[in-house]
Design a protein around this nucleic acid. Sequence first.
DNA 1: CCCCAAATGAGAATGACTTTCATTTTTAAC
DNA 2: GTTAAAAATGAAAGTCATTCTCATTTGGGG
Lengths: 172, 172
Amino acid sequence: METIHLNENHTPLNDNSHLKEIIRDLGLKITQQRLAILNHVVTGKAHFTAQAAFESLSKTHPEIGFATVYRFLRKLSENGYVTEVRMGGLPARYEWAHKKHHDHLTCTKCQGIVEFENQEIEELQEKIADQFGFVLTDHVLELFGLCPKCQTKEGELPVPKNRFSSHLEPNN
Amino acid sequence: METIHLNENHTPLNDNSHLKEIIRDLGLKITQQRLAILNHVVTGKAHFTAQAAFESLSKTHPEIGFATVYRFLRKLSENGYVTEVRMGGLPARYEWAHKKHHDHLTCTKCQGIVEFENQEIEELQEKIADQFGFVLTDHVLELFGLCPKCQTKEGELPVPKNRFSSHLEPNN
DNA sequence: CCCCAAATGAGAATGACTTTCATTTTTAAC
DNA sequence: GTTAAAAATGAAAGTCATTCTCATTTGGGG
């Protein structure tokens, strides 16, 4: 059905068959751009912003526009292939959702992110939704605090330029 | 110390003494604008957007600028007097934080918000932070789903103009 | 191959804030 | 009370992430 041969990047085409399947599942046409973006999402590191993905992709695929990156990431996230994470008013961060569901513990100083999962919490959430007659479709659980490193290095690192509200006092 | 008399709105001044204390606690000067905004926050309904507060306030205080509303709401939220809630990329919503801590269960269709509290979840969160050596400073727990009403009225209401990602399929 | 709906990219538009700055207020000191 | 310095304000401009528009290109069924 699908002959294996090399594309212009000397990458075996069948590397992409898995990615193609995903794009097909979304009911979209298979384009080089989407393959490149999807490949980046799957193989790159998690918690990237759309902007970062765009810049990174631009190096090898200068022809990809950021609109395409945003559009496709949205589609992927709408269909559960990637998870969109937002903290405060900061740009959305995305991650490939092939892993088991998990939540995030974020350091408000260095913005480091630790992933965790906790079945008990998941179950309690379901129970709560039930109590109010809701059908749960999604949830966001983000914990914020200071990571071990930032607890010691008090005030050494400058607070990242974006403000951080949420009960912290930035002016001390 | 403070003589009770009427201000130009024929409202007893001591109505505001509580509000003034809050503003003082923030290290800010007491202005008519801040009193008006704070009064709105305390007595108005919860989960308002900055824009909504601005518009509502404009009726009685046409001189208040939206910059002032945003600035003051931010200050209040930084100091824990109000809680900032964000869902998806939608405008931040604020609520007076005089109540016990609670989280939100939001209907993705009608955007109705139910508040709940669950001590078990709170404790589990602390435990998780501990496990990673984090000092917890804050957290966000937002549950999303369909409220009982919206479960039955399938597709009757148009989806609010702002898209809703998160594993829902808007195009069906 | 051909065609056309789907996809793309460049740039304009949007929308929620934030910042700037010239003017007005507050308030602490007389 | 006056007053002056510091803080606050509002109008408007700026920012920034994201979305939209639209003219052009492209994938893929026929």
